[in-house]
Amino acid sequence: MYRIIREILKYGIKTEPAPACDPSLKVGGMEMLEKSLAIRHVDAGSCNGCELEIHALNNPYYLLEGSGIQFVASPRHADMLLVTGPVSRHMEAALKATYDAMSEPRLVVAVGDCGRNGGIYCSRRNYACCGGISSVIPVDVEIPGCPPEPEAILKGILSAIRS
């Protein structure tokens, strides 16, 4: 126990302030949600690079849960769907079903270049891909990048709340 506490003290507090958002978007923000946002993540066919950066959001540097944003296990508990793409033909039905299981109001954020338009996999016609997330479900905010860095994902999530 002593060693665990020693390590914690040695590391200190790593958490950085959340990035500033475009102020013109500020309508309600996190205050409106009373510092509570539940996100359901769906990987609709990514290379798993975006997942690595979404994972990083939970590390002590970004500490997503510290600002009241948490990932939940069921779409029924979620306010927001965070989707990585491209949407493969095999995940199309599962993505739609996940979206349909959410109660309204609901937000959808498409992560990464593939989430936006299918990225490199869909640069030409591809039998196995449907394209970006918006070709299957309505999308509120798209976050470019391959993969987008954690700060960019965080900014995208915050701007979806404020839009």
Partner: peptide, 11 residues
């Protein structure tokens, strides 16, 4: 498995 099949070999 196969849910993430996105036609990489064809691409």
């Amino acid at each position: 498995l196969g849910y993430k099949h996105k036609g990489i070999e064809k691409a």
